[in-house]
Design a protein around this nucleic acid. Structure first.
Length: 111
DNA sequence: ATCGTGACGAACG
DNA sequence: CCGTTCGCCACGA
């Protein structure tokens, strides 16, 4: 009988790992990451994790590559961060349409 | 332990 | 089409 070893790492730790796995020039949505973690409905938690990340050390995590399901950068009130994220993504070769959205068909990690 | 919150998502009207 | 509501999960106080 075996017992299923539950992940030692906290949910958001796993979020970080997955985020690190996102190749340069690709993007992924919160919901998609939530699915990878086994909780398709935990998109909010994913966002929460990345938010917490900013005070942990976002240097190791390409949080910029994580966007919402609409392919758009989702920030609340921090337009400064939005600008930064967009800038970083553009530096990786990701392009935004005139709506400020990213085409998952082209830049989606798993899509 | 309970409550509130938050970088979301899908459904409704 | 847009705005709003509900549900979801994990974390901090």
């Amino acid at each position: 009988m075996k017992k299923i070893l539950l992940p030692k790492k906290s949910f958001y730790e796993k979020v970080f790992e997955i985020t690190k796995k996102i190749p340069k020039g690709k993007v992924c949505s919160y919901g998609q990451i939530a699915v990878m973690l086994g909780s398709p409905r935990a998109a909010r938690a994913v966002g929460y994790a990345l938010n917490s990340l900013k005070k942990n050390g976002l240097e190791d995590v390409p949080w910029q590559r994580v966007i919402n399901s609409k392919g758009e950068i989702s920030f609340k009130g921090d337009t400064i961060r939005v600008n930064l994220q967009r800038k970083l993504l553009e530096q990786e070769g990701i392009k935004f349409n005139m709506l400020g959205q990213i085409d998952f068909k082209k830049f989606g990690w798993l899509t």
